[in-house]
Nucleic acid binder design. Sequence first.
DNA 1: TCGATATTTCTAGTTTTATGGGAGGACAGT
DNA 2: ACTGTCCTCCCATAAAACTAGAAATATCGA
Lengths: 105, 105
Amino acid sequence: MKLDDAAAHLEALGNPTRLKIYRALIRAGRAGLPVGRLQDKLKIAPSTLSHHIKALLVVGLITQVREGTTLVCHANYGVMRELVGFLVAECCTESAETADAKTAA
Amino acid sequence: MKLDDAAAHLEALGNPTRLKIYRALIRAGRAGLPVGRLQDKLKIAPSTLSHHIKALLVVGLITQVREGTTLVCHANYGVMRELVGFLVAECCTESAETADAKTAA
DNA sequence: TCGATATTTCTAGTTTTATGGGAGGACAGT
DNA sequence: ACTGTCCTCCCATAAAACTAGAAATATCGA
């Protein structure tokens, strides 16, 4: 994962409302959660919720599947794993000399 | 770590420039990196850099220590570990019923 | 004290984000 | 086709972020 992608994902999660949405979807498991159900939990305007959901969609952190009249949202575990992988590899270890810092000095 | 704190940390890292700053500090290891050195690497206006550094400081992701005329920045590994811990515990596992359903511990 | 270097703070302009009201589209049931 | 429900899109507004020039502050050495 590139740094800019990681930053985009972090930014998407870096909002309390969106992080709540994401966490709710994680807790919902594979079944996911309809948008309306998210609205019950978060109690914000539908348009606002939709706006935040879109922000998570465009970076791939969540997906949407229509089931009848409702749109069910699912967390995309793979993307989160990539993100955590990036943080651990590049931003957590004290010896994070990844591939280009060796020619310094 | 509370959700709002996690969101604040994610937001701080959710900017390419700040993520670059943070990664540079990680790569610098315990020795840290002076602000001026960061500016050499990032090539942005001093005031802009200072602005971003402050954003990382206020959430505790980095610290600053004066050494003579220069201010040396250090990554705060502990905070990052907490953040990654939050993500893994609450936002990564498929059985993330944590903290408000089980509380076995 | 004076000057040089390093960095922050002040200030301001431009852009982006957050929020939500209302209109509109998709779908199921009748 | 009509209606109700669900959700998104378009629009506007207010708030916040990003950028950086200029001035101010901190420290050291002469």
